[in-house]
Computed example of a mutant assay.
Amino acid sequence: MNIYVSNLSFNTTDESLGGLFSEYGEVTSSKIITDRDTGKSRGFGFIEMSSEEEGQNAISKLNESEFEGKTINVNVARPKTERNSSGYNSRNGYNGGTNRRW
């Protein structure tokens, strides 16, 4: 089960986040999302747990709990959606993309 965790401290590491969730079952992966330019945490991450039951238990116990000085939000992760890299957004037109032909 894939779990989304937000409002993390910028000092939280993959290891500390995985350790928190390991109290509720087997963690198969733990990943803090970082800014591609600076390498600094963006304040959210993903946990993958081996079973649905363990994941649901972790979500119910950890959502809105305090971790490393912050009240974290824990939810089932939504599937990743395809991003349009052409610069065109079908909802409101051109959005300043980088694939320009001048």
Rank of each mutant, 00 (worst) to 15 (best):
E23C: 00
R101P: 09
E48C: 12
R83Y: 00
N57S: 09
F46E: 08
I32G: 05
K31G: 08
F46S: 03
N2K: 15
R100V: 00
V74R: 03
K61W: 04
G69K: 10
N95K: 10
I47L: 11
S50K: 13
N57D: 09
K80Y: 03
N63T: 04
T12W: 03
A58M: 13
E23V: 03
N89Q: 06
G93E: 02
G18C: 07
E48T: 10
F44W: 03
T28R: 13
G97V: 11
I33E: 02
S29T: 14
S65P: 04
I59F: 03
E66P: 04
T34A: 12
W102F: 11
R42S: 14
T13H: 12
F46G: 01
T13K: 10
L8I: 11
K61A: 15
G87W: 10
I59N: 07
R83N: 02
S65H: 08
F10Q: 09
G96A: 01
D37N: 13
K70W: 00
K31S: 11
G55S: 06
N7D: 15
F44Q: 03
G87K: 07
E64H: 13
L17P: 00
E52M: 12
T98C: 01
G55D: 02
A58Y: 01
K80Q: 14
E26T: 15
G39H: 06
S9M: 09
R78A: 09
E66F: 14
G25H: 05
I32V: 15
D14R: 01
R36M: 04
T13I: 13
G43K: 13
T34W: 05
S6P: 07
N92I: 01
I59R: 11
E54S: 10
I33K: 08
T81I: 08
E68D: 06
I59M: 12
E26G: 08
E48M: 14
N73P: 06
R78V: 10
K80F: 05
E23W: 00
E82P: 01
R91H: 07
N84C: 11
I47S: 00
N7K: 15
Y94D: 15
K40E: 14
E15R: 15
K40Y: 11
R101S: 14
D14E: 12
S41T: 02
E68S: 10
E82K: 10
S51L: 06
N57K: 15
G69T: 06
P79D: 12
F44K: 05
A77S: 15
L17E: 02
S60Q: 06
E23H: 02
G18I: 05
F44V: 00
G93K: 10
L20F: 03
T81E: 04
I32Q: 03
E26I: 12
K40C: 05
A58G: 04
F21P: 00
T12Q: 12
I47N: 00
G96W: 06
S85Q: 14
A77Q: 09
